[in-house]
Every structure is written in structure tokens, then in C-alpha cells.
Write a protein that binds this DNA or RNA. Structure first.
Lengths: 119, 119
DNA sequence: CCGCATCCTACTCGATACTG
DNA sequence: CAGTATCGAGTAGGATGCGG
């Protein structure tokens, strides 16, 4: 029998504060491919707005998951890259992603059953 | 070098649709301790409203992560429990939780540094 | 090129009240 | 006990315009 983690509710809050929003995970994943410039990230994460990318990067930088390097040149150049901490997180997130990929079909079937029963 | 998962952005949406909200994970975790009645879940997940518990349970039931059993008695009695699919998800989520626990202190330090530098 | 400030909309969520 | 219905406040996030 699986056992519930004790005092987990507050830890779940911590987890979700980090990865629970739409864009943070996508940005972290994109950075998993190596250092990226701001504009490269914007291209690499389809649908993200400039504002949301900025916000996501600031949060990640503040939490020490992403490093930010400003090159004093014109035009400005800024590189972002995962820290060791960020790479460790990405590997855990892949556990979740893999689960979704592995079970995508079964979930779809469950939904079909549910929806046909409840109209 | 870590490599980014290809076509990951849409899969991230799938993941977040499942576990990206405040309460779903907490409910799944509580059910990790075994079958629970509605009111037991409400007590076991501090701060959750009746409405949010209902919504979370419906989503989880629809996706086949949680089973729902209605006992035809008065007063009504309904039991919820994780399916095999739900238990598999919970184990992956623990990977994330453990990362948070392991690195909580380092994240706090990073925040302190960031905040002191940027006032 | 990089990113902040502002405005505005749409949805989320909590509180409350009510039902089988 | 186990929900459903309704309403209002708060917030996330897109659009736009400007500045270094």
C-alpha cells in the first residue's frame, strides 16, 4: 500500500509555486537544450508572450534554477542557462512527462467512458 | 548534456491539466493513504472548499485516476480511492516533492541572495 | 535586442445558501 | 452526508507602448 506523505500539503504548495504555472516548465525544458538568448526562448516556446517569458525567467532566476548572463555589447545580448539545481528539477519533471506519455491513451479511454455515461 | 524533450510543449499542457492546480495533487496524495469518504478528504486536505474538492474529484474520476463508489444507504456514503493509474501518477509526483524537500534550503538561499542584490 | 509599465479581460476560486 | 447553485473579489495573462 502506498502511503501519503505527511505534512505534504504545504510542500505541494512549494512545488506548485515553482512549476505549477503554464510557462515555467516549458521554459525550463527549452533551457534543457543548452543556453538560450531571450529571443531564442521566445521562439522556442510557442505561444508565450514577452511578458510571461520575462516573468517566468525572473522567478526561475530568483529561485536559483536559471543563470542570467548579460553581455555588455550593443545590441544587448543576454544568455540564460539552467543551473545544476535547474537540471536536477528538469529530470524530476521528466518523470511526470513520461507518465503522461505512457498513459495518455488510457486516460483518453477513461474520459470517453465517463463522458458517454454522463452525456 | 541534458537534452530537451521534443514536442514537449503540448505534453506539458497535458501534465499541467492533470496536476497543475493547487488541490488535485493534495487530494491524490491524501488518497494515497487508502480509500476516503468525501468528508474525510475535506478534513484531510486543510483549506480546501467543498466546491474545489468536488471539482477536483470529478476531474480525477473522469481521467480514470480515482474510483468512486456510492453505497445506497442513508445517510449517503461515497468512497473514493486511487486506481492503479492514480497510484502510478502519485509515485512520479513524489519525485518532484522529494526534489523540493531536498533543495528547499538551497532555493531559500538563492532567493535571499537575489532579493538582497535587487533590494 | 531586451525588457519594464500599463491597461484590460476572462477566468478562478472562496463564501454562502440550498437540496436529496 | 454529499453534493449543486449562485455571486463577487481577486488574479493571471494578453495587448500595447515606451525606454536603455
Amino acid at each position: 500500500m502506498l502511503k501519503a506523505r505527511d505534512t505534504m500539503t504545504c510542500q505541494i504548495r512549494d512545488v506548485l509555486d515553482r512549476v505549477g504555472d503554464k510557462w515555467t516548465l516549458a521554459v525550463v525544458n527549452e533551457l534543457g537544450g543548452g543556453p538560450r538568448r531571450f529571443t531564442e526562448l521566445k521562439r522556442g516556446v510557442p505561444g508565450i508572450s514577452q511578458r510571461m517569458l520575462t516573468v517566468a525567467l525572473r522567478v526561475l532566476e530568483r529561485d536559483g534554477l536559471v543563470g542570467r548572463t548579460v553581455h555588455p555589447v550593443v545590441p544587448p545580448r543576454v544568455d540564460y542557462e539552467l543551473t545544476a539545481l535547474g537540471r536536477a528539477l528538469l529530470e524530476r519533471v521528466w518523470g511526470l512527462i513520461d507518465w503522461t506519455v505512457e498513459n495518455h491513451h488510457e486516460i483518453e479511454k477513461a474520459r470517453g467512458r465517463y463522458d458517454s455515461l454522463n452525456r
